[in-house]
Every structure is written in C-alpha cells, then in structure tokens.
Amino acid sequence: MMKTETSTAPAPAAFEPRITAFVCNWCTYAGADLAGTSRLQYASNMRIIKLPCTGRIDPLFVLKAFENGADAVLVSGCHPGDCHYTSGNYHARRRWTLFRKLLALTGIGDDRLFFSWVSAAEGQKFADLVNDVTAKVRKAGPFCAVHPGRRAS
C-alpha cells in the first residue's frame, strides 16, 4: 500500500502589505471611485483616508500611519494647477520634498513612501498605481520591526 505523506505544517502566510493612502477629496478620491465604478480589479492592500485637499495632509499623519502598523504610505492629490483650492497641492509638494529626505535619513525610503497626482478621470492610473505600489511594498517586506517610529506592540 502506498503511504501518502501529508505535511501538517501550515504554509507560511504570504506577506500582505498594509498601505495607508491619504488622498484629496476632489481628484484622487474621485479617481479611486471611478476605478471602482469602472469595475477595475486592483490589489486590496490600500486603506484610503480622504481629506479635503493634499494641503491638509500634515506630515504627522504619515508618521501616525507608520506608528500604528502601516508598511507603506501613499499621498495623492490633484495634478499641479488642478487643486480645488488653487494651491493646496503646491504647498504640499514643498513639504513633501523636504519631509521625504528627513524620513529617508531615519530609514523610511522610496520603497515605503509614495506620492502621486491622480485626477478624477484617471481611474485606470489609480488602479495601476495601487498595483505597482503594492508590488513594491511586497518586495520591500514588512516595515522593519525595530524602527523607532513603530509603536511597540
């Protein structure tokens, strides 16, 4: 009689990144909505937090996300010139240009912190972006457990 071997060890759970997205109400959120109503399939790893404008996204929000379990953060809003409040995204852009370098010095680099412009008409771009970001974070692995910015569990 043949003896069939069955492995009792559970397969190691694949790493599913948790990605927090801070998006503005008028462009990227509408773009995400369009991706949904167009029934585009994309990775389900992103948790979207909607704010009025990228100008409202304080760098503290990003740190809070990393503190509480995010493996990566995406910040996204209207294309330059298209901000619903005229210049919120221009203000935000300066902030991010500086802030990303500060975070890089502390070990949070380009593979965990993403920025994009996605308009209300760019449902496809949003879906592609989520897929691409998710793939990159999957490759980068879980956010380093010893990072000082992470809340000790």
Partner: peptide, 12 residues
Amino acid sequence: SWSADDDHSYMR
C-alpha cells in the same frame, strides 16, 4: 510659499 516650478520628479 511655493512656486509652480518646484521639482516633483518623485511624484508618480
């Protein structure tokens, strides 16, 4: 303050 010409090469 801001300028429309600020770099955003890192934006996707």
